[in-house]
């Protein structure tokens, strides 16, 4: 199925939880989904016979400029039917929450922990959302565009002394 057909299918099933289909300025046509509806959309995408998206290739957080919304992008693939779809969910910076797909795809477990660690996006329903790359007592979420590194961490200077 093409991305346009999948978008039509999803829109028919989930109506206003599917916001739009972005086709301009991207090599992968993207379906924008409301953040709280990601879990049920992914359940539908995986369990329906005609869609059968059994493989989550990539899950990444994204910050455009330091002021507007954060977003999470999902790249899905079906190994049986060999078609692709990309999903995107926008969420506001102060209170970012997206529903988790860790119980649907095993890949999402660690990828969501990384998005929490580096972007501060909370995934509701994740079994164990804690930092994965940085230490538990690290302050801040480094990949956000407005992140400023602290001067010291546990007594060690971070910036290079020139």
């Amino acid at each position: 199925m093409t991305e346009q057909e999948i978008y039509a299918d999803l829109s028919a099933k989930f109506s206003d939880k599917i916001v739009e289909l972005i086709e301009a300025e991207t090599f992968n046509p993207t379906v924008v989904v409301a953040p709280a509806a990601i879990t049920e959309v992914c359940h539908y995408l995986k369990d329906t016979e005609t869609l059968n998206f059994n493989s989550l290739m990539n899950l990444a957080g994204h910050d455009t400029d330091g002021e507007s919304d954060l977003s999470v992008i999902y790249h899905l693939h079906s190994t049986e039917l060999d078609h692709y779809i990309t999903l995107k969910a926008f969420t506001n910076r102060e209170n970012s929450e997206v529903s988790s797909v860790a119980n649907i795809y095993g890949t999402a477990d660690w990828h969501e922990r990384e998005a929490w660690d580096l972007y501060g996006i909370k995934f509701t329903g994740h079994p164990d959302l804690k930092r994965i790359l940085l230490e538990e007592d690290w302050e801040g979420h480094p990949l956000k565009k407005d992140y400023v590194a602290a001067e010291f961490y546990r007594g060690m200077r971070i910036e290079k002394v020139k």
Binding site: L134, P142, Y147
Partner: peptide, 8 residues
Amino acid sequence: QHGYHVLK
């Protein structure tokens, strides 16, 4: 330059 987690 930009390594926030690297000991220099």
